[in-house]
Simulated assay, not measured.
Amino acid sequence: MCMEKSPWEKAIEFHGHSCPGLAIGYRVAEIAMKRLQEFRSADEELVAVVENDACGVDAVMLLTGCTLGKGNLIYRDLGKQVYTFGSRNGNRALRIAVNNTGQPDPEGAQLRKKVFGGTASPAEQVKFQLMQGRRIEEILHMPEEDFCQVREIDFSLPAKAQIFPSVECAQCGERVMEPRARLRDGKAVCLDCFNDYSRGW
């Protein structure tokens, strides 16, 4: 008999491996869905703004249903473990800032460096995996107030995703969405073929 996988197991399968970063995104998504009283977004009922491109974003996508393809996942390259979720149904939004979830001690940091550098012994690799497992369990089960700061915010939900016509780039011949095309010598070109003109402002 085949047992249904848990949401955490599905997140691991989607991401490719289990790690503390994935656990952070999983916990953030759980908190957001519970606080907003939302279910997984089938269309654009829920919007997520993520301020990093780390492992946790995969868990956010899987649990919330917010994806780039649907237009309800917005990526801001700020390098912060901060996530904003807006509900169109409830007209509410939350900003979740993850606290310091515990950095490895000096020994753990050195071990991590060896594992990712390919110089760790089999015993050291096992030790590292055990260390990672403990951190994952801590992240998934620590009290919410220790894990993050949650506050309700005023948030202007972005317009729903639109479908635009495409035009052919006069330079490379590839098709580009009309709002992303630029004019060069009176012809439409894609951003890759467009030589931007800037004088520093």
Results as ranks from 00 to 15, higher is better:
Asp185Ala: 13
Val150Gln: 03
Gln171Glu: 14
Ala54Phe: 15
Ala42Gln: 13
Leu68Thr: 07
Glu124Ala: 07
Lys70Gln: 04
Gln132Ile: 12
Ile24His: 00
Met61Tyr: 03
Gly25Lys: 03
Glu4Arg: 10
Glu44His: 09
Ser6Phe: 11
His15Met: 01
Val28Tyr: 05
Gln129Arg: 15
Asp196Leu: 13
Thr84Pro: 00
Lys127Ser: 08
Lys114Ser: 08
Lys160Cys: 08
Pro165Val: 15
Tyr26Ala: 04
Trp201Val: 11
Leu22Gln: 02
Asp105Asn: 15
Ala97Asn: 07
Gly25Asp: 00
Arg182Pro: 02
Ala109Thr: 08
Met3Gln: 14
Ala48Gln: 00
Asp192Ala: 12
Cys2Gln: 14
Lys113Ile: 11
Trp201Tyr: 11
Ala181Phe: 03
Cys2Glu: 13
Ala93Val: 06
Asn91Ala: 14
Val167Tyr: 02
Met142Asp: 05
Asn89Ala: 13
Glu51Ser: 02
Ala120Met: 08
His17Gln: 10
Gly16Trp: 15
Glu138Thr: 13
Glu168Ala: 14
Val126Met: 05
Cys169Ile: 07
Pro20Trp: 01
Phe164Lys: 13
Gly133Asn: 07
Asn91His: 14
Cys172Arg: 07
Glu124Pro: 02
Leu46Cys: 04
Gln129Asp: 13
Lys80Asn: 09
Ala188Asn: 10
Gly69Asp: 12
Tyr75Arg: 15
Cys66Trp: 07
Cys2Tyr: 14
Ala32Pro: 01
Leu63Lys: 08
Gly25Ile: 05
Ser41Glu: 01
Phe164Ile: 13
Glu4Gln: 14
Met131Cys: 04
Val49Cys: 06
